[in-house]
Simulated assay, not measured.
Amino acid sequence: MTGSHYTRFKIIAQAVGILGSAGASGGIITISFFSIPPLLLPPSSPPRQPKHTTTTTTNNKKPTQTPATPIRHLLRQWLYIYTKGMNTFPAIVTASALAYIYLVYYYALHHHHNRHLAALSRRLYLTAAVVNLSAIVYSLVFIEGTVNRLMELVRRYDDGSEEMGEAGTTSVKEDGERGRRKEEEKKEASRLLAMWGQLNVVRGIFPLVGAVIGAAAALW
């Protein structure tokens, strides 16, 4: 294979690595900023409180607001977003990392009469690959627990068993307990979704850093 072919593969690998990392980062972070917040919006027109009443707060914090969306649909929307992301971004991040690893191999074979520069390029591309793959490690270590709890709620509400009881089979007390439990679980789901969105932003930073390092290596 001629040198021109190797050069062409190098350019393709640089494009795949840098653009893939940047694209994955943008997509991941966009989910947190533009997809999750609308799911957590409170009712648009909450009932007004009488003037003589006051809202109870704890430690001067704002009262907790639950999303207007029913919990079952809220969880289904998150599951759709999560599944789409899982089917897309890990593959892009991995492909970008493999492109960077190919560039490490390329510069190990082609010194271009400057061993120091080739060694620097290898280190940069290897760092970019490791940073990219660190997004997956970060997900397993720091986000998996939140995802597992959300999945438990998804399974609980998936068949609608928690949304309503069979007619005539529950007492007023049981209905009240079910309603309180649903409200608490809705608050928990809202908290978990907000946490997942924040953790997801951090996850998106890894491929962004990988793209910056890869671009820096390409400019040497």
Rank of each mutant, 00 (worst) to 15 (best):
Thr2Asp: 15
Thr2Ile: 05
Gly3Ser: 13
Gly3Ala: 12
Gly3Met: 14
His5Phe: 15
His5Thr: 15
His5Pro: 05
Thr7Arg: 14
Ile12Pro: 13
Ala13Cys: 12
Gln14Glu: 15
Val16Ala: 03
Ile18Lys: 00
Gly20Trp: 00
Ser21Arg: 01
Ser21Phe: 08
Gly23Tyr: 02
Ala24Val: 00
Ser25His: 02
Gly26Tyr: 01
Ile31Leu: 13
Ser32Asn: 06
Phe33Trp: 10
Ser35Phe: 15
Ile36Tyr: 09
Pro37Arg: 12
Leu39Met: 09
Leu40Ser: 03
Leu40Tyr: 03
Leu41Ser: 12
Pro42Asp: 05
Pro43Met: 06
Ser45Thr: 11
Pro46Met: 08
Pro46Asp: 08
Pro47Val: 14
Pro47Met: 10
Pro47Ala: 13
Arg48Met: 12
Arg48Val: 14
Gln49Ser: 13
Gln49His: 13
Gln49Gly: 09
Pro50Ile: 07
Thr55Leu: 11
Thr55Met: 08
Thr57Asn: 12
Asn59Gly: 04
Asn59Arg: 10
Asn60Pro: 05
Lys62Thr: 04
Pro63Gly: 05
Thr64Cys: 04
Thr69Cys: 04
Pro70Ser: 07
Pro70Asp: 12
Ile71Arg: 00
Leu74Tyr: 04
Leu74Gly: 02
Arg76Ile: 09
Arg76Cys: 08
Trp78Lys: 05
Tyr80Ala: 14
Tyr80Glu: 08
Ile81Lys: 02
Tyr82Met: 06
Gly85Asp: 03
Thr88Ile: 10
Thr94Lys: 00
Thr94Ile: 04
Ser96Met: 00
Ser96Lys: 00
Ser96Gly: 04
Ala99Ile: 01
Tyr100Ala: 03
Ile101Tyr: 08
Tyr102Asp: 03
Tyr102Gly: 04
Tyr106Arg: 05
Tyr107Glu: 01
Ala108Val: 04
Leu109Lys: 14
His110Thr: 12
Asn114Asp: 15
Leu117Ala: 14
Ala118Asp: 02
Leu120Phe: 04
Leu120Lys: 11
Leu120Val: 10
Ser121His: 14
Arg122Leu: 05
Arg123Glu: 03
Leu124Lys: 09
Thr127Glu: 05
Val130Ser: 03
Asn132Cys: 08
Asn132Lys: 03
Ser134Phe: 07
Tyr138Thr: 01
Ser139Ile: 12
Leu140Tyr: 09
Phe142Met: 12
Glu144Ile: 03
Gly145Val: 10
Thr146Val: 14
Thr146Trp: 06
Val147Tyr: 06
Arg149Ala: 10
Arg149Gly: 05
Arg149Trp: 06
Met151Leu: 07
Leu153Gln: 13
Leu153Asp: 08
Val154His: 08
Arg156Phe: 05
Asp158Asn: 13
Gly160Cys: 13
Gly160Ser: 08
Glu166Gly: 07
Gly168Met: 11
Thr169Gln: 11
Thr169Met: 12
Thr169Arg: 11
Thr170Asp: 06
Glu174Ser: 14
Glu177Gly: 10
Arg178Pro: 05
Glu183Trp: 05
Glu184Gln: 07
Glu184Phe: 13
Glu185Val: 14
Glu185Gln: 11
Lys186Thr: 14
Lys187Thr: 13
Ser190Thr: 08
Leu192Cys: 07
Leu193Glu: 01
Ala194Ser: 09
Met195Tyr: 06
Gly197Trp: 04
Val202Asn: 07
Val202Leu: 14
Gly204Thr: 02
Phe206Ile: 00
Pro207Arg: 01
Pro207Lys: 01
Leu208Ile: 06
Val209Thr: 07
Ile213Gly: 00
Gly214Ser: 09
Ala215Gly: 06
Ala216Lys: 02
Leu219Gly: 13
Leu219Met: 15
